[in-house]
Design a protein around this nucleic acid. Sequence first.
DNA 1: CGTCTATTTGAATGTACTCAAAAGCGGTGG
DNA 2: CCACCGCTTTTGAGTACATTCAAATAGACG
Lengths: 195, 195
Amino acid sequence: MYTLLLDSLAKHVSLTEQEINLLTSYLIPKTLKKKEYLLREGEIHHKATFVNQGCFIMYSLDKNGKAHVAQIAVEGWWVGDIYSFFTLKPSDYFVEAVEKSEVLQMNKEELEELYIKIPKMERYFRILVQNAYISYRNRVVSSMSTPAVERYLQFLKTYPGLEQRIPLYTIASYLGVRPEFLSRLRKKLAKGSIS
Amino acid sequence: MYTLLLDSLAKHVSLTEQEINLLTSYLIPKTLKKKEYLLREGEIHHKATFVNQGCFIMYSLDKNGKAHVAQIAVEGWWVGDIYSFFTLKPSDYFVEAVEKSEVLQMNKEELEELYIKIPKMERYFRILVQNAYISYRNRVVSSMSTPAVERYLQFLKTYPGLEQRIPLYTIASYLGVRPEFLSRLRKKLAKGSIS
DNA sequence: CGTCTATTTGAATGTACTCAAAAGCGGTGG
DNA sequence: CCACCGCTTTTGAGTACATTCAAATAGACG
């Protein structure tokens, strides 16, 4: 149940058995069906959410009603609108389960409590936020300077096997191209020697 | 000397006269000539830097030696590689003065000291980091879903008048297009009724 | 099995890039 | 103070990357 989360924690902080017990006592498991929402535009995201199984996308809708995928999260990742979580402002994003999924959740107030009891946890989350920051910053550069094929290959590396779990049009949206075009890219990659 | 900074602070926290005096006592002014560097790739960015006058760009070089502008900062903004600052890891970026500039700086250790003496300052910087985060997140979506013309118009709104202070090729790099193309865009905008 | 949605394919178009060369502009030294 | 040099911007022509629209095909699910 908690293996993945403990692995993630272990990468950044080391916790005693007691601390682990305390931490896990705060977590509420939840399962979601395919296409269920964890968060909708306009809502405030007050739950920190760790993906134990399954896959989520976070996307916004532009004025033409087109979806733009800002984040993809699979097992072992935290998912959600960090900004809404920290500021308690309404989110501009939807967070949707792409497949049957299972998450562990904690309310913001409980997280604050936990910070006091286990200060190391604050460090852990600070590092996660820093990483999220970097990841967006890098994506700004790559989305502007790298052609779509390479961005797709990069996606394959970052999320191995995921291209078979989520629909093509979702990947296309994440990469910033139209589905028709990604379809053609895949075809080319399949013919011409890969990579 | 401190007007701009105090304005920026006032937007998020309210400080007593005493606190302001303490804060300003930590700040070291520095002037830079056009094309001087505040930070180079590989260096650790241990100074928080507020722009009092002038303009800076933060950019990285890709494997082909092409520059990609990640951030532009004018008077009233903080500039620099936040990630390197917080992690004390070497930066991937250059921070360069685009024109004769004047900044106020504080070392990381001194900032930590200040946090203890004026906890409100921690709040102020946390908000700034959140805003930087949002700004990159929005740029990811806009760079992928918005044509270059609109991104340019957006740039003009965000940085009024700046198009006359920094070279065209720098703006092009910030927008993710080639200079030749931005030149043509400008021409079109000048002819056809604007906006 | 049928329906609804997702993917593929085709043709035409538009957006942005490359390469090359000319024009403009700013600073520096004579 | 002017002439020259180097760098930035503009212009032109050809090309590549990615989109639109429309229609056909394939898959998924009840």
